[in-house]
Design a protein around this nucleic acid. Structure first.
Lengths: 224, 224
DNA sequence: CGACTTAGTTGCTAAGTGCAACTAATAAAA
DNA sequence: TTTTATTAGTTGCACTTAGCAACTAAGTCG
């Protein structure tokens, strides 16, 4: 019985240029040296408390980012996905505001429109596709897209984020009602102003109890 | 870097005695020899096309059952869950009618109320808990519970299954409306009669296009 | 100061969900 | 044979929720 190659891969998503983008890195080793791929790496049993720990470590080491939202996507396996042999990769996905990636100062990180990536090594293209599907699906009934915004944001901004993720326009009052009843947001006293030539909007932030918390379960942040 | 122990575990659920039951087996080897645990086993890279293939094999070999519904639940890992060392288990869950288990003829298979299992070896108790959560969550917007029924069933029977899984009563007309609009079921010409002292109910079955098919994706069987 | 633009609210309409009361069909009891 | 009990299935109505359009509010710019 030959050994199984165990690794983790992370689909780091962000919003830029009006679309969801996935963070890719040029591979520094064989196989597929030089190709763009998801940040990933072997599990280190000596170091990692579990696969999520491995994902956190890999993401931090390769991109300098610690994402407040990180959730297991699924496990991909088989003899064909890695030329080195039968392999198993536990995939995670993370959502961060674009500013976090910019602030990481890692110029190696390359962003590509997530819905258009093709031809990635291993089965990374499929992993990205599945992450997109998951994000879209969860966004339709949860507050997931909040993690794509920064610390504070206005409701119209947040609505625009939802519309990009879901790929369809949302009714303004329905959106406000839904956000109201979910009760995840709290208004901040300051207002939006910065150079906009019109009425400023109320700033909101995620309530403390929902902030800074890794997704502990599948349904982590979905109240109700 | 020590090797990682890679295995699969299957949460096989069925309905009996008015509640969801999980299939357990007495372990034949150390660790935890003699204890009741989920059917599970090592991944065989020579034999398995992927972890799902491993789960199908393990379930077939240990219980004699091939479940039409089998979906990946998640991956559990860490240094502490198996006394032999850092381990990783890809968990799957399956739903079958009770008759399938009875017909398998494997008397080793023990059923226990799924919501009450405690103290299983490894982290199997948590895996069961998570499977229950997933089944409950998916049942609220999909046709999952159909797999707990046999080939054919009446709507009142199916409704009772939903009520057990969801743990709450469902309005009769709402349920019928929902089933209607999902369009997964087709009526069979025969009727329910067998000894019941009242009006017989229409028999239904899952439409051919939804039958006999493994869950290929996370959203496998959820139209809409 | 008035035009323009975006934020946020109000009121109506349409659609969906749940309840209760009805009819339908069968077997057992009278 | 008629009545009764019991469950299957339908119909109509009330209530709740989602979406649309038109309104008011608050800022900048010319």
């Amino acid at each position: 019985m030959s050994a199984i190659i165990c690794s983790v891969d992370v689909v780091l998503l962000t919003l830029e240029g009006g679309q969801l983008q996935v963070a890719l890195l040029e591979r520094e080793h064989e196989p597929f040296c030089g190709a763009l791929a998801l940040p990933g790496g072997f599990i280190h049993p000596d170091e990692d408390r579990d696969t999520e720990g491995a994902a956190v470590r890999v993401l931090r080491d390769k991109t300098g980012i610690v994402s407040p939202y990180l959730e297991q996507l699924g496990t991909f396996s088989g003899p064909g996905r890695d030329p080195r042999g039968w392999s198993l990769a536990v995939a995670y996905y993370a959502l961060v505001p674009h500013a976090v990636i910019a602030a990481s100062g890692r110029s190696e990180v390359v962003l590509r429109p997530a819905s258009e990536v093709r031809g990635l090594p291993f089965d990374h293209s499929e992993i990205v596709r599945m992450a997109l599907e998951r994000v879209q699906s969860k966004s339709s009934y949860s507050s997931l897209p909040v993690y794509l915004c920064g610390e504070s944001f206005t409701l119209p901004e947040l609505q625009a984020v939802y519309e990009v993720v879901l790929g369809e326009p949302i009714n303004k009052v329905s959106f406000r009602r839904k956000m109201e009843e979910l009760g995840l947001l709290e208004p901040i006293e300051g207002k939006m102003s910065a150079g906009k030539a019109h009425r400023p909007a109320q700033l909101y932030r995620l309530r403390a109890k929902f902030r800074q918390k890794l997704a502990l379960t599948d349904r982590g942040l979905n109240p109700g």
